[in-house]
Structures are given as C-alpha cells and as structure tokens.
Computed example of a mutant assay.
Amino acid sequence: MSSREPGDYAIVVGIDAYPRYGANGRHLRGAVRDAKRFYQWLLNQDTGGGLDSDNCRLITSEQNPMALTQTTVDLALDDLWARARNAGGGRRFYFFFSGHGQSVVGSDATTYDQSFCLPQWSQTMPHAALNADSYPRVVQTCMPFREIVMFLDCCRVPAIKVRAMNSSVGCHAPLEGFEQVECMAYFAAEPMRRAFEGSVQTEDDQATDVHGFFSTALMEALQKGSSRPGGGIGAEALWQYLEYRVPQLADENGRRQIPQRVPLRFSDTVVFGAAGQATAPEAENFEIRFSAARQGPVRLFDASATEMRAGNPSEASWRVRLEPGETYLLIDEGSGQRRVFVFLADMEGTHDTF
C-alpha cells in the first residue's frame, strides 16, 4: 500500500522506565502508550499522518530500558536522513517525545534548554539526557526537509548544573536556504512547570487508562480534524485546541498545566492528517454555562471578531450554533477573563462552563 505522505518522516520516543530516577525509581505509566498512539496515527493512511512505515521510527523503553541511549535515537535519525537524501528530499519531519524532561540552565545562567531524560538518568548520572534544541537544529541545518514539527509531552522543571547531550548527528556545512525551514514546537507545559499524566478515557481504550494530558488533547484534535476542505487540522487550530483542552484535563485531575508553543503563532497552511470535513449543523449545537465567578457582561466573538452574542451571566447558560474547526473567544468584561477555544466536531451536543 502506497503512503499518502511519502515525503514525511518521524522519530517517536516514549519512556516509562526510569529505574534510577530517585531512590526507588520514578516510572511513568502512560508515556509508552501515548508514543504508540501517536505512532499509529502517523501510519494511518486514511485520516492520520499517512507516513510510510519505513520512514517512521518508534523507540520505547519496554524491552531493555538501559539499552535505550542517545545512540539509539541518533542512529534512527541518521538512518532517516539517509532515506530522505536517497528520495531527493522530504516535506516534514516529526519528533515526538513522552517521558521525563527538564529545563537545563544555559551557560549564560539566564537561558534554559529543554532536555529529555533517558532511562539511565539519576542524581549521579544527571547528564543522561538529550538536548531537545539540538535535534531540530541538526534537522534544519543538515537535512532536506521544509517543515519540522515537535510534540513534547514532558516536564520543564529546572535542573541546575546539568549538561544535556547534543545530537551526535551533524554536517560539515549547513544546507543552502536552511533559514527558511519552518520549525514549530508544541510543549506540554510552560517553562519551569510540570506536565502530568492521569486516568483518562480515550476512544482507543477499552477502559480508563493512564495518559499524558497533553498527548490526550493532541490525539483528540488529530483524530477529529476539522471542517476545512480535505479534512485535517491546521497548526494554529491545533494549538487553539491544546490551549483550551490541556488545562481542562489537568483541572479535572486536580492539576495545573498550561501548554506553550514556539514560535508565538503557527500557520494553518501546515495541516495535520485528513480527519474531519464535518458540516456545521443548522441547529444550535453547543451550550455555554456560566460559573459563579462570572461578573459580566459576557460576550462571544467568532474568528473574525464579529460579536455573536452578549448578555448577563445571570442567564445561566446560552445555546449557540458553532462551526467545527472555527476559533471563538469568550470575554467577561467584568473580570477581564478571556477564553479562546476551537470548536471541534466531537464537542457538538456538549457543554462547557466559563
């Protein structure tokens, strides 16, 4: 079977096993599961990423965690680089990581680099971590891709005096025009903050299982897509969904978690998958309820800044018609609180509290 996106390549890493992280180890329960879900989405030729299986590498800690080293990741990267060269270049390179992570203080003592902890990480082996910034950098400067997309489901808490390892892959000179390569990173949490996992019911699970909140929201958006022609979900629309959904999942589990992105805005010309193509229903399809904290008046705007509805929160709730894939803004003028969200097809017939 031919692949829908033969020019796309990916490395997917999931690490649950951290036997030396703390006195008794600090294992995760959902990182490998989330990596596998994303990997399967990448290979889905109907509505997923549409990658050729030969262009996609899944690396997990299941068999022998101590055998998963930087060399494991770098050999996979080098192999995919060779495949892309032999194919005359590629379109997009995905890098997905789920596991423990840290923010590493830079040499100037004022900046921080993101790192990915390897299974060997411990207090006595604090450098057993990958410098997350070095991987998109080597792909951008050395490899024939037009887009780089990173999904990073890990903590960003600070670690002092740790030197995460740069990728050992590299080239003698950067490719011509490498500055024009579009790079975007979706982080599970803000700098200096933790990312969490918890019991979440997903469409793929027969029962409630542990997943990362970021990975859960990511897969929800990718699997549902939007109403755009041809399906799929744009990079900006995906971000808006993550910005809305990740804090909600965390809050439901008694946690605080807010995702972050770099750069500050993405282009919806970068599209993920082919799910969706839903047609907006004519009837009202969503209920907005108001919490006791609302002061009002409350206003609802669409993506073109057109006011759709305004009123006092004493109305208790609004029934409105929203279009799948579109971005909306709620403003409480009394408190100044705002919420931006993307309305996806699976939200039809449901409600949310503002």
Results as ranks from 00 to 15, higher is better:
28 L>C: 09
184 M>E: 05
249 L>K: 00
160 I>H: 10
141 T>Y: 01
150 M>Y: 01
212 G>N: 06
88 G>R: 04
103 S>P: 02
182 E>L: 14
238 L>F: 02
86 N>I: 02
67 A>E: 15
75 L>Y: 06
195 A>N: 03
240 Q>M: 07
25 G>S: 03
97 F>W: 01
175 L>S: 00
337 Q>E: 14
94 Y>V: 07
135 Y>C: 07
102 Q>D: 11
259 P>E: 08
188 A>Y: 05
250 A>W: 04
93 F>V: 08
219 M>L: 15
116 F>D: 04
116 F>R: 09
206 Q>H: 06
273 G>P: 02
295 Q>A: 13
117 C>S: 10
330 L>A: 06
161 K>I: 07
84 A>G: 06
147 E>T: 12
115 S>A: 08
151 F>C: 06
239 W>M: 04
28 L>E: 03
144 P>D: 01
146 R>Y: 01
257 Q>R: 12
219 M>R: 07
169 V>F: 11
23 A>H: 10
288 I>M: 09
54 D>Q: 14
63 Q>R: 13
5 E>W: 03
243 E>V: 04
121 W>C: 03
220 E>T: 13
27 H>S: 12
328 Y>L: 11
231 G>R: 00
68 L>C: 10
343 F>H: 10
297 P>K: 13
279 T>V: 14
231 G>I: 09
27 H>R: 11
80 L>K: 01
93 F>K: 06
109 A>C: 03
105 V>W: 03
162 V>R: 14
221 A>E: 02
308 M>S: 04
250 A>I: 06
118 L>D: 00
118 L>E: 00
2 S>W: 05
217 A>H: 04
29 R>D: 13
202 T>V: 13
20 R>N: 12
93 F>S: 06
